[in-house]
Nucleic acid binder design. Sequence first.
DNA 1: ATGGTGGCACCGCCA
Length: 272
Amino acid sequence: MQLSIATWNINSVRLRIELVGKLAAEHQPDVICLQETKTPDDRFPLKDAARFGYPHAAIHGQKGYHGVAILSKLPFDNVSRQGFCDMGDARHISVVLGREAGLAQPVTVHNFYIPAGGDIPDPAVNEKFRHKLDFLDEATAWELLHPQDPAARSVLVGDLNIAPLEADVWSHKQLLDVVSHTPVEVERLANLQAAGRWVDVMRGFIPPDEKLYTWWSYRAADWAASNRGRRLDHVWATPAFAAQARAMTVLREARSWERPSDHVPVVVRFEA
DNA sequence: ATGGTGGCACCGCCA
């Protein structure tokens, strides 16, 4: 059995729900993890998701900001939401796909929207950057992100708002002082990854020295021509499940869809 | 060196 999982920062799910339909029609992922839904749960377009073939939805939203959701063709065994930094922000939701989905061995899916961190990469003067670092530390200490069983099947996806490798940004030198690529954040992200022994699935398909982006700013006259991208969106998996990954696609063309998000979807197909 | 765009809320904040 195949299980394909997409992650996408949609930047308002109500404004762009038809683009979710386009992703669904063209790629048919079994599970779609969304970030920045910017929508309270009672206004989430569940009927549209069902119309696209996703009758199962786990949502954790709030008014105007943040918000995450997991749409699925398959039913969930369990849904949970975790808060971080006592902020009341909707930045995490997870589901378990197992017996209900027809999987003999369950798969846990964690969907994160990590704080962007503001403009100034100094926690002493920028509380948003402080929050980003604190969020990463708290996630690193969260035991449920440390699967103990080597055979555990979990994925951690989302907009992690950090581009860790030199080839994850258009210019390593020019972005060393830019929030998303500073050494202090990259180190915190590495701590989170190491604590759970998470494998970077995208880089299992694309060599680590090859440029790979998932986000291009809206503030470019021609995003494709300048191509000043960053890889802010990630798919991590436990070692056993990462070994089951069979294909990975970054849907670069989605950046040219009508009224696009500034992020594009990433789809990974696993043998489940 | 600067400012560029976009979404949601509400007349600013966040990315």
